[in-house]
Simulated assay, not measured.
Amino acid sequence: MESTRTVAVNGIELFLREQGQGPLVLLCHGWPELSYSWRHQIGAIANAGFRVVAPDMRGFGRSSAPQPIEAYSIFDLVGDMVALVAELGETRAVIIGHDWGAPVAWHAALFRPDLFTAVAGLSVPPPWRGKGRPLEQLSAAGVTNFYWQYFQKPGIAESEFERDVAATVRGMLCGGFADPGRSLFIPEGRGFIGRSAATLPLPDWLRETELAYFIEQYKKSGFRGGLNWYRNIDRNWDLTAPWQGAQIHQPSLFIAGANDPVISDKMSGKHLAAMDRVLPNLKRKLIIDGAGHWIQQEKPSEVNAALIDFLKQVT
Rank of each mutant, 00 (worst) to 15 (best):
W31F: 14
W31H: 12
L34M: 11
S35I: 07
S35G: 15
S35F: 04
Y36N: 10
S37I: 10
R39W: 00
H40L: 11
I42F: 03
G43S: 11
I45R: 02
A46W: 00
N47V: 04
N47K: 12
A48M: 09
G49M: 10
G49Y: 04
F50N: 05
R51C: 11
V52A: 08
V52K: 05
V53S: 07
V53M: 07
V53R: 00
A54F: 01
D56E: 13
M57S: 08
M57V: 13
M57K: 01
G59F: 04
F60R: 01
R62K: 09
R62I: 08
S64D: 06
S64G: 04
S64V: 06
S64L: 09
A65T: 12
P66A: 08
P66K: 02
Q67I: 15
P68S: 04
I69W: 07
A71Y: 07
A71L: 15
S73H: 10
I74Q: 14
I74S: 12
F75C: 13
D76G: 13
V78N: 04
V78P: 07
G79K: 06
D80M: 13
D80W: 05
L84H: 04
L84E: 03
A86H: 15
E87L: 10
G89M: 12
E90T: 10
T91K: 00
T91C: 08
R92T: 15
R92W: 05
A93K: 00
V94T: 14
I96R: 00
H98F: 09
H98G: 15
D99H: 00
D99K: 01
D99E: 12
W100L: 03
W100G: 07
W100F: 15
W100K: 03
G101T: 06
G101R: 00
G101H: 02
A102K: 00
A102L: 07
A102N: 11
P103N: 11
A105E: 13
A105F: 08
W106E: 08
A108R: 01
A108F: 01
F111M: 15
R112Y: 00
R112N: 10
D114H: 00
D114T: 10
L115T: 06
L115Y: 00
L115C: 09
F116E: 06
T117F: 02
A118T: 08
A120N: 02
G121L: 01
L122C: 05
S123T: 09
S123P: 12
V124P: 05
P125Q: 02
P126C: 01
P127V: 10
W128V: 09
R129P: 10
K131I: 07
G132D: 12
G132M: 14
G132A: 13
P134K: 03
P134A: 04
P134D: 06
